[in-house]
Design a protein around this nucleic acid. Structure first.
Lengths: 140, 140
DNA sequence: GCAGCTACTGCAACTTTGTTGCAATAGTGT
DNA sequence: ACACTATTGCAACAAAGTTGCAGTAGCTGC
């Protein structure tokens, strides 16, 4: 809810209309417990035209409201900072479960690379996949 | 060349045919200095049918010969270990240059997460983008 | 609450990307 | 050189993504 009003204010200050489709797509992303594909979004919002979903996601990307997460062979969308806490993902290839993670040391690693290479890092992807603890112990 | 013969041997031992299209696609990926999109591949190999490129890349993915790299909004393909040394990328958003990187500490970070979370990591993506040193100093 | 302005949506038509089945072809072993 | 069959290229298709435009809905001022 917090984030929703934050975005509403952001839109108002920029004279961008926070329309019904845009609200719906934001809420859809906010409710999801894992990153969504475009298909996920427009099957869960059947009364919003595909075109509007593409255009809204493009807008949200340019505003930094959402980010693209590469999962398996697919691109998925998820709220970005500051609309959702910064995190990464571990995906279990057996059971398909998603775990939000935030490994300590990752930030340091980025800052260290910036210093040594003399670059500025404005974005990063970091995603893990493998076998979760439960699947290692379980029957299968 | 090394890697090419390595793959040739791998194919022979598995009774998979190392055909002309498959050779061409491998060489194409090997020659490239940055990850290629499917479009990159079939524009540079116009006498190979799109279908064969999709099927070959699918095969190569399943054999671990190539891996998918998420760059910007696109998926790109690149040779994987052991056909190319393991590395990640820094992409400059101003000049578009690609730099292969291998930040020290990344492996430790993965191993540490495996221990603390009790999981097994079989794959990871780690890509950086921002502004390179040259672009920070240059006129623009 | 109404009118007017225009950003935004939904539609339709289209382009590009990815998939499937099948007949023809080209690797491989003998 | 022959035969076996994995693999290719073709054609037809399905899905994903794009574009232009007329109509709509969200703001603003009254």
């Amino acid at each position: 809810m917090q984030a929703y009003h934050q975005l509403e204010a952001e839109f108002k200050s920029r004279n961008i209309r926070f329309t019904k489709p845009r609200r719906a797509i934001f809420k859809c992303l906010q409710t999801a417990t894992y990153p969504l594909s475009i298909r996920d979004i427009y099957t869960s919002l059947p009364n919003i035209d595909r075109t509007s979903i593409y255009r809204t996601l493009e807008l949200y990307l340019s505003l930094g409201v959402v980010q693209i997460i590469p999962i398996g062979w697919k691109q998925k969308y998820e709220l970005a900072e500051p609309y959702a806490p910064h995190h990464h993902h571990f995906i279990c290839l057996k059971c398909g479960s998603h775990t939000d993670i935030n490994p300590p040391g990752l930030e340091d690693l980025l800052r260290h690379y910036e210093r040594t290479a003399g670059v500025i890092i404005t974005a990063h992807t970091f995603e893990l996949s493998g076998v979760c603890a439960a699947c290692q112990q379980g029957i299968q």
